[in-house]
């Protein structure tokens, strides 16, 4: 019987004027644009120099700054006030003032990361210039980067993007679909037929799971074609994680649709939770930097386990052993949600 319901869902997705476009365009856009956007690398910092000393030494320093990859030399300013004006109008990001052999770096720190990284880069250049001995010490310090040898932020973000895509396709779309049937009243017709809860729900979800896995495959291929980035660990594990995440988000979507009356409501509630789950998952910022109350939430956040695990597999080349803990946690949370989802769907009240 589920065969016929599945057929119906696929036909309806195909007939919908909007859905196929979304399923097709969205992943491509996400994979081709997002990695470029989600670039936290700090470059092109515009520097204003206020050089009152005007010595050859200070001019050499300015020259060094111009040559650095991180900085763009914005110009010499006569006074600090003048330079500050540049910062206020967003024409410069950082000021270097040289006065009586003293160096002052003032950085616009509205964006904290940018401000601190920029000022520390600049102070390194200045220190190296003034005190070559420090450089000698620093040169004896070596750093070995395990994994992601190219230090590319894209490698770090691409697996996370796959998670976001699975969440959109397997969470939002089925939830909206079910609330849509509710709003139109078509669900009543299904409820008077002998269709069991399970087959109805599965028939709603399976198409999106399949679409999700298809999209995942497209993403893996795109990341190889466009960025030359490939998965370091076993691909099968990526699929396993994706399936578990899909199970969670579709159950979650289903629960929300069971409790919502209108599409708008479902969309907003879903959006709210998704934003929270995502922000607290360590997708953008490291979870360990969080205060302890926020860190506690990561224990029940499936997105956190997923992001952790998929990065381990994709970037670090982990095996099942290295992500076993996350997989078990995902299995538990997803099962719990699935049971709740099926329980909350009522054919007879």
């Amino acid at each position: 019987m589920i065969k016929y319901l599945l057929q119906k869902e696929f036909l309806q997705i195909r007939r919908n004027s909007f859905m196929p476009k979304i399923i097709f365009i969205f992943p491509i856009m996400v994979m081709c644009v997002m990695p470029w956007v989600m670039n936290q690398e700090v470059t092109n910092i515009r520097v204003d120099v206020v050089d009152t000393d005007r010595t050859t030494e200070s001019q050499q320093l300015v020259h060094q700054i111009e040559q650095s990859n991180y900085f763009i030399f914005n110009g010499q300013k006569a006074t600090y006030q003048e330079a500050l004006k540049d910062i206020e109008t967003s024409q410069a990001d950082i000021i270097l003032e040289i006065r009586d052999g003293q160096y002052l770096i003032a950085a616009n720190a509205v964006n904290g990361t940018k401000g601190s990284i920029g000022s520390s880069y600049l102070s390194q250049i200045v220190t190296a210039h003034v005190q070559p001995s420090v450089v000698a010490i620093q040169s004896k310090v070596s750093t070995l980067f395990l994994y992601n040898k190219g230090q590319s932020y894209k490698v770090f973000m691409i697996p996370a993007l796959m998670g976001i895509l699975m969440m959109m396709l397997c969470g939002f779309l089925p939830a909206l679909n079910i609330v849509g049937e509710k709003e139109k009243g078509t669900i009543e017709q299904i409820n008077v037929t002998p269709v069991s809860k399970w087959s109805f729900i599965l028939a709603k979800l399976i198409p999106y799971w399949l679409i999700g896995l298809l999209v995942l495959t497209v993403c893996l291929i795109l990341s190889w074609l466009v960025y030359g980035i490939t998965c370091q660990g076993p691909l099968l594990l990526i699929y396993l994680l994706a399936i578990l995440l899909a199970l969670f988000f579709s159950s979650f979507g289903l629960i929300i649709s069971n409790y919502s009356d209108t599409m708008q409501q479902a969309m907003l509630v879903m959006w709210f939770f998704v934003v929270c789950l995502m922000l607290l998952s360590g997708l953008f910022t490291p979870t360990r930097s969080m205060p302890s109350w926020a860190y506690l939430t990561t224990y029940v956040n499936p997105m956190h386990y997923f992001i952790d695990a998929i990065r381990t597999v994709f970037v670090r080349g982990g095996t099942f052993q290295s992500i076993a803990h996350q997989v078990y946690a995902l299995v538990c949370i997803s099962t719990l949600m699935a049971v709740w989802a099926v329980k909350s769907y009522k054919k007879n009240n």
Binding site: K8, R15, E188, T193
Partner: peptide
Amino acid sequence: KFSLYEDLTVAENIRLFAGIYG
């Protein structure tokens, strides 16, 4: 209020409901 899925064809609707009843 509602009886058949409007975005399915005649044959597809019949097939769906017949299939549901086994």
